[in-house]
């Protein structure tokens, strides 16, 4: 090549922020984020809406992320919360479907969301007493509280990561989570007043 000896350039690609920054000029690199996180995003979406919807939500999450990758705050190293935030937003568009499925589970004991991966027989075995009131409680939460609760319980995000994902202050995450937990606890027949935040803070905060 005829370039006058350009200085060797190292393009580190291990960090998500590096991949995203480089992908602005080299879009094909973005597929690495898909390989890293699509399985988690898919599984999370499948738990909320079923695996058919999860296919679309996963694909759409990464397309949205790809299109707005130039706006990713590269001071953050991990793309995981950002991707979950996009997925949560897309899942939010199916709020009625999600609530309908939870109510069906509460009413009948059969979960339409898990039908594709749970054998009927296993389903009956697994249908222990708490599942139905729990589903009813989740259906009764506001969409915002449900996002916070399930990002923590199902996606294993920390409070800080949920705050990043949803673009809200950490204090708001905490208060929404407390409200959601209190409602779930009441639905399960326990005393909603006995709610210690300490365990969750220690584990996930």
């Amino acid at each position: 090549m005829t370039d006058p000896d350009p200085p060797p350039q190292h393009i580190p690609l291990h960090d998500d922020a590096d991949v995203i920054a480089q992908s602005v000029e080299r879009p094909e690199l973005f597929a690495r984020l898909y390989d890293r996180y699509a399985p988690d995003i898919h599984r999370y979406a499948a738990r909320r809406l079923g695996d058919g919807a999860a296919d679309d939500i996963t694909a759409e999450t990464f397309l949205v992320a790809f299109r707005c990758r130039a706006r990713f705050d590269t001071r953050r190293n991990a793309a995981r919360p950002w991707l979950y935030g996009i997925a949560a937003n897309l899942i939010g568009k199916h709020r009625r479907t999600e609530v309908r499925a939870l109510r069906a589970l509460a009413r009948t004991g059969t979960d339409p969301v898990t039908e594709s991966w749970v054998e009927r027989a296993d389903d009956r075995v697994a249908a222990e007493a708490t599942r139905r009131p729990l589903a009813e409680a989740l259906a009764g939460l506001s969409a915002r509280d449900r996002h916070v609760l399930l990002l923590i319980a199902w996606a294993d995000l920390s409070y800080q990561e949920v705050a990043e994902a949803l673009g809200i202050p950490v204090g708001t995450v905490r208060s929404r989570l407390n409200r959601a937990r209190r409602k779930v606890r009441a639905a399960l027949g326990a005393d909603p007043a006995v709610l210690s935040d300490a365990t969750e803070v220690a584990t996930y905060g």
Binding site: R43, A46, A153, R185, T199
Partner: peptide
């Protein structure tokens, strides 16, 4: 506790 119950719900969801 209730968080454990929530975590168990649909926890059989397969990894794609």
């Amino acid at each position: 506790d209730e968080m454990t119950k929530v975590r168990e719900l649909r926890s059989q969801a397969p990894r794609p």
